[in-house]
Each structure stands twice: as structure tokens, then as C-alpha cells.
Design a protein around this nucleic acid. Sequence first.
DNA 1: CGAATAGTGTCTCTTAGACACTATGTC
DNA 2: GACATAGTGTCTAAGAGACACTATTCG
Lengths: 236, 236
Amino acid sequence: MTVAADYDPRAFPPFAVTVDIAVFTIEDGLLKVALIERGEEPHKGSLALPGGFVRPDENLREAAVRELSEETGLESPDHLEQFGAYGDPDRDPRMRIVTVGYWAIVPDLPEPVGGTDAAAARKVPVADVLNDRDALQFDHHQILSDALEHAKDALEDTTVATDFCEGEFAISDLRRVYEAVWGVELDQGNFQNKVLEIDGFVEPTGNRRTGGRGRPPELFRAGSADRIDPPFRRPR
Amino acid sequence: MTVAADYDPRAFPPFAVTVDIAVFTIEDGLLKVALIERGEEPHKGSLALPGGFVRPDENLREAAVRELSEETGLESPDHLEQFGAYGDPDRDPRMRIVTVGYWAIVPDLPEPVGGTDAAAARKVPVADVLNDRDALQFDHHQILSDALEHAKDALEDTTVATDFCEGEFAISDLRRVYEAVWGVELDQGNFQNKVLEIDGFVEPTGNRRTGGRGRPPELFRAGSADRIDPPFRRPR
DNA sequence: CGAATAGTGTCTCTTAGACACTATGTC
DNA sequence: GACATAGTGTCTAAGAGACACTATTCG
């Protein structure tokens, strides 16, 4: 990256830089994403990913954390990862905006609250949103779709799936995370064997869950490992 | 991404948006990257990834293609892929610049030529650059390192390795691509078997290469497949 | 008891990789 | 001939997945 006299950056029309965050959570066995209901034009009433302008004194990740907090009331997600930048000249009709996409996990999303610059916030099944090409404004459909792909990949070779689970959880809870994110059914027995064979994925607490139907499951918490090797490939 | 009255983008100090490109090629069995020698302050004389400001009327990829052409004389790389954005407030001492990283492949890089805003351009072994934390200006060390990681990953589950090879090539040429990018030695026989078993990775031309030492290899060209499934995992 | 869920074990097929062996060129 | 590189085959170990079977709870 170099600067020459004939391309003084100050001579350019200003770009704005934003971050947009796809916050995923599992609810009722469904993968959901937190969306903001726009209260203003353009696209009044349509849905958007939470996000907003990066401030002069913060880096991109800090902007993502702050916007998340402001727009959804959510403090420090359990996972926050950048996956790409979007900068087509006409992606926002108002001005030239380049946005940086992040995806995040929260274990059990507290009901999001509208913040200063959001009219409302809600959790919507990702499948529903992606099935309607016009549900989201701008290029947020593409951004959400890319975010989901990155989340799917992350589940293959990292242990982030445990971040969807609050505190102590059963192996079957973890399986439902994989099933919800990947959109497939997994064999219960094979999943159990596999997870327990992976060093540091989960560690036993000695506790069991009571009250449900069927045999009470043993409970685990997230282990110390952060990578799964060899990866846990999803069915293709 | 939303806009509220109290965060009018026009009230912000302008951000500049740039692209930086890590162009990889194989030369003498080594993975090399094209670097620009800066002719101006700051960091005069130090090396940088080619790149530059995104113009108001072009998207990010177009900016990458244009800058690549301007700074290295290179037209349309065989592979060009975005991998991340970098935006720490102090990453460039002159002003707030957010840069978007791309990595690219060229089969046998023609000697790069300095363009309008570059004093010179050269190909340098990636290992040498990454072993010297101060070889590159700004955060280009991190960017190059991330680019390499993405290139390594891409070789695992896509057929982009063939883009490093010009026209017709031997299986051993392809093997040397993998060895150079991954920085490992691969078993010759196993590699051959594996590549030929993957549908659409390479297709035979019926030609052989003559003149070298040893048995003349059959020559292939890139096949129609673009993904390798199951992936060709690199040794860990 | 039966239904539901958890947990374990077995079998088969595929793949990765070590490695031996053969093939065909140059010197 | 020796040497170098290309190409093929064989064996073994590990992993994925189908699936059977056992365990433990509730109604």
C-alpha cells in the first residue's frame, strides 16, 4: 500500500466504514440471527444486521463489540470473528460505505433491546431469512449467507460449538448445535463417541441433568482445546 | 447497519480505504511474493505489499486488479481472493486507513515493473520476509502471514494449485507447488496416486516432457473441478 | 409395561501414508 | 552400467458412518 502525490487520500470523496454483525444463537433447536428492524428510511421496516459506523479511535473489532452492545444490549459475545469486507460502490444508496462483516455466537440470546439507533431488535430463524431474498436490506442477504458459511466451517475444525451452550450441557445439546448450524441430522451414537474421543473438546462435570424424559444425560463443560484435529467434517 | 441522526457519516473524519495484495508465485521451488520498494516516506526503502486506494467508482476487487496492474504490470491474476480487513486506528501514521487484503496467484510472475506510485517491485521468498518482522512496513507482516494461511487452506480443498502452473505441467510440478506453499515434503508416489484419483483435478494431454533427467513425465492441464473432496489435508 | 433419551460396542468401507517395486529417460 | 525421476502397487492403521444393543428415566 503506497501513497503517491497524484493520489493524495484527502483528495478523495470520503468513504465511510461500518461493521455488520451476524449474531447467531440456538433457540428451540433452530439457528437464529439477531436482526434490527429499521425505523428510518431507506428501507424503513425492513430488517438489517446490527452494525454501524466505526469511530475514529477504535479498531474494527471494538466497533463490532460496541455496536452489538448498543443495538442488541449484548455484552461481549462468546465468539466474534471477522469474515470479510463488502464495498460495492452502490451497496448503500446514501453514500460510499465499506462494511466489514463479523459473526458472533451467544449461548442463549437474551431478548435483544433496541438501542440508540435501532427501532427494534429480534431473533429470526436464519433459514427463514435466507429463503427470502428481500427480507434484508442492501447486501445483508449476501453478508448473512457468508457469515453462515464461516460458522459452518468453524464448527468443523474448532470447538466454538460449545460457545452456543451455556454453562453445563449434555452431549445431545452440543449435537443439536451442530444439527442446527449445519442443517442436517447426525447419528446420536456416533456423535457421542466422536466428541468424547476428541481431547479437550468437553470435560465431565460429574453432574447429571434431571427432570427430562429418558435417561438423564451426564453434563459437561467446554474443554481447553480450541481446535478439532482431525476436523469434524460435515456431511456433503 | 443503520444510520441515525446522531451518527451522520458526514460528521466523521474521513476514512480512506485501500486494498493490499499478496501475489504469490513459485520460482526455483520457492514460494515468493511480489513486493514494492517504497520510494517515499514514511518507511522509505522498506518493502510493502502492492496496493492502493479504492476509487469512488470501483468495487474492492476491481481496485485490487487495477493496483496489481499499476504496481506490478500484472494483468488479471489466475486467482484473486479476499481474506480480511485491517483497520487499527494507528496502522498507518498518516491517516485513518482501513485496508482490505487479497491474495493472488500468478503462474510464473513476469519481472514486475514499477508503476506510477511504486519505485520498484521485486519477488522475494515468503519465508525470508516472514522471518524478519521488520521487513515490511505497517502491519503488512500480519497481512502477508494471514494471506499465506489462506493460501495454504485453499490448497487443501480447492484445485487452485494448478493456477501456479503455466499451461501443461507434470504431476511433480504440482507437487512442488504444494511443497513450496505448505513448506513440507510430500511422498512422490502417494501424491501421484492421490491427484490422479481426484476427479477433474488434472486432465491428461497425451504429451510428455523431454530433455530432463529421469523418466519423462506425462503432462497434464488443469481439470474442470474446483473443489477437492474429501480435502487434501496438509500434514500437521 | 412402553416410549424416550443416553451411552457403548461392532462391523465395514474409505482414506492416509509408509514403502517397495517397476519403468524409462540421461550421463 | 549408475543415477534420477516417473509411475504403480501393497500393506497397515485410523477414521467415518451404519447400526445394534444396553442403560435409565418418566408416564
